[in-house]
Amino acid sequence: MPDGSRKEMTVSVASIEEILKELHINPVEVVVAKNGKIVPEEETASSADELKIVRVVHGG
């Protein structure tokens, strides 16, 4: 999760977009890595996958 915590979810197959919605995370604010690789929101994931949700920072 963006705050460094871990959360286990049981889903059959769902899109990243749906998973973020379930977690109440604004997809514009994050990128999601599936099993270590950044994937687009349309990508699907299941309970067997590990997702890392990274909050995008924009400051300089």
Partner: peptide
């Protein structure tokens, strides 16, 4: 990957 490949959309602008 280019910047847009990795970050397709700009995050909201906030005072950081």
């Amino acid at each position: 990957a280019c910047l847009r490949c990795t970050f397709p959309r700009a995050p909201p602008v906030t005072t950081f």
